[in-house]
């Protein structure tokens, strides 16, 4: 017994660090170093070729907070993230419940549903644009023929609906896979017991299935919000470029635009720090308050 315990852990020293070194090196090089540079940049005005760097303290942040358009972007971002997360999770849950009934056996069909997740955001954006652009979108032209007013180029609500649709569509398959796995992990015996007690399908869903799905749901909530906050600039860039009039100018798109198109590194870095702060705060809130209601069985 004693010898087994001895073998189960290292006694410190250099060996564990050596074994960890490759992983740590990768982390430092691809994560901590660039992230550190980003934090550093946020306090400077920088010529992109690095011939001049001017320390400006908190000026980059002050400029953001002084701009009414920036606050508008914050609001737009929350609307976008909430709508995208809600839409993609609800759709995925509905699909998973439906699939759970019929697809139990078909691995092929289940695998096919994951495909949209593999589409790059910019390509997903292009696909949706080809459907819904008022000048050449197949579905937009059909709507026009039906005299339905649809113009995401000028109507902020339409534009928001469009990027939410595209962003949610891309994420539905990811959510679906997790929900389906969660559903299939629910013990049959529990459902049968509920059935014997006289619970109909909706009652079983509400009192058995959904509570047992809460770990999956909570995980997906966190992941989807992070996706909506960070990973959606390609979709916005392809579909609306933040327009009309800033109605879809979400924070991460501005980070991308100012950094990678305008080479305004200082402001872009400051914006990404604010965004990171927001998402960290949001995640903490979720773990502190939402996770309490998660039933890990």
């Amino acid at each position: 017994m004693a010898s087994r315990e001895k073998a189960a852990y290292f006694k410190g020293g250099i060996l564990p660090w050596l074994l960890l070194a490759p992983q740590l090196l990768v982390l430092v090089v691809v994560f901590f170093w660039p992230a550190g540079e980003g934090i550093f940049q946020a306090f400077f005005l920088t010529d992109p070729f690095l011939s001049r760097m001017l320390f400006v303290g908190l000026d980059n942040f002050a400029a953001l907070f002084a701009s009414p358009e920036y606050w508008d972007s914050v609001r737009v971002t929350f609307v976008f993230a909430a709508a995208t997360t809600a839409l993609s999770m609800l759709l995925a849950l509905a699909l998973a419940i439906a699939a759970d009934q019929v697809l139990r056996s078909s691995m092929v069909l289940r695998s096919l549903v994951i495909w949209p997740y593999a589409v790059a955001p910019a390509i997903a954006g292009m696909l949706w644009l080809f459907l819904f652009h008022p000048a050449f979108g197949v579905l937009a032209l059909a709507l026009r023929d039906l005299h339905i007013d649809w113009n995401p180029l000028l109507d902020g609500g339409d534009a928001m609906a469009l990027i939410v649709g595209a962003a949610a569509w891309k994420q539905v398959s990811y959510n679906f896979v997790f929900f389906l796995a969660g559903l299939q992990a629910i013990p049959k015996a529990l459902l049968e017991a509920a059935m014997i007690d006289g619970a109909g399908p909706l009652r079983r869903l509400r009192d058995v299935v959904l509570p047992l799905l809460t770990p999956t749901t909570f995980f997906l909530l966190v992941m989807n919000l992070i996706y909506a906050f960070f990973d959606t600039f390609g979709i916005v860039d392809a579909i609306t470029e933040g327009g009309p009039g800033g109605a879809t100018r979400i924070l991460v798109y501005k980070v991308y635009k100012d950094g990678f198109q305008a080479q305004d590194y200082g402001s872009s870095a400051a914006q990404s720090l604010v965004l990171m702060g927001l998402v960290i705060a949001l995640t903490v809130v979720q773990f502190r308050f939402v996770e309490r209601r998660v039933n890990y069985g």
Binding site: L154, P244, G245, R249, D264
Partner: peptide, 21 residues
């Protein structure tokens, strides 16, 4: 300088003209 950002602003505000805002 930062013409990309200036152009983006002009684009946004032109859209506010076309949408009568």
């Amino acid at each position: 300088g930062y013409l990309v950002q200036v152009d983006e602003i002009i684009d946004e505000e032109l859209e506010n003209i076309w949408s009568m805002k």
